[in-house]
């Protein structure tokens, strides 16, 4: 694989030409916030948090789906990007009922820590306060759409890694929602293999193991690369 050289935040970086800007930046030690992206799953480009500025391109580009190019000049941290990222997180916090204080993921949540990192200390927009029922019908896991940010990691892991495609998205716009089976109770959706992968990849407390109480749920994602590399390359990474 040929290697290209690009500039990220004034630093010369080389990366294999099939890498994305996000991968190259992270390899070079730059942090770019992401929510829908998760290594091992097909990139989605939906959360828009990983937007970066690329010289000569008028639009902002989602680094998770933009491939590196020779001579590219990328900026990942500008005031404009920072402000937009802040607003995006505020919009996410406003559209559902993200009550961190009573969340199983309190303290371990990607949305919560991202908000703190970006300096979101309050939300300037109206809270939409949707009325969304919690689905606790599954024997092992619970789905709380109030805490969902529609990143679709669960859908992708269910489809791409587990192969069950029990989960999908219904509706559109602000009325989008994650469903199991024919929008039926999770416990009755027989396409669910109860593997729990969706729970582990969920960035917030929208999917969690039954029995966990406030701040008790922690998630681990090593299994993704473990499975994928094991499946494709017959290589199992013990070091991870």
């Amino acid at each position: 694989m040929p290697v290209v050289t690009l500039t990220i935040n004034d630093k010369l970086v080389s990366a294999q030409s099939d890498k994305t800007v996000l991968e190259a930046a992270r390899d070079a030690g730059f942090e770019i916030p992401t929510l829908c992206h998760l290594e091992g799953l097909t990139p989605r480009g939906g959360c828009r948090l990983c937007l970066v500025e690329v010289e000569g391109v008028p639009r902002l580009l989602a680094s998770c789906v933009t491939q590196v190019q020779e001579g590219m000049v990328v900026r990942t941290e500008t005031e404009r990007l920072h402000n937009y990222r802040k607003m995006m997180v505020e919009l996410l916090l406003a559209e559902r009922n993200h009550v961190c204080a009573v969340c199983v993921m309190n303290g371990h949540c990607e949305l919560q820590s991202l908000a703190a990192k970006l300096g979101v200390d309050h939300v300037r927009y109206d809270y939409l306060c949707p009325d969304l029922p919690v689905d606790a019908s599954h024997e092992r896991n619970t789905r709380d759409p109030n805490r969902c940010i529609l990143c679709a990691r669960c859908i992708r892991v269910c489809d791409e890694v587990e192969g069950a495609h029990c989960l999908d998205m219904m509706g559109r716009g602000i009325h989008c929602n994650i469903i199991t089976g024919m929008n039926q109770e999770w416990g009755k959706a027989r396409s669910c293999t109860a593997c729990g992968k969706c729970v582990q990849v969920c960035p917030t407390g929208a999917l969690f193991k039954k029995g966990s109480s406030v701040a008790e749920m922690e998630k681990q994602r090593e299994f993704l690369i473990w499975i994928l590399d094991g499946r494709d390359k017959k290589v199992w990474h013990w070091s991870r």
Binding site: G46, C47, R48, M88, L91, A94, Y125, R172, G173, I174
Partner: peptide, 21 residues
């Protein structure tokens, strides 16, 4: 636009609602 937003990306999904409000 709010009604027709597909819901995939956050800025459009939440932003159109807030602008409409």
């Amino acid at each position: 636009c709010m009604d027709e937003s597909c819901g995939k990306c956050g800025p459009c999904r939440g932003g159109t609602v807030q602008m409409h409000r």
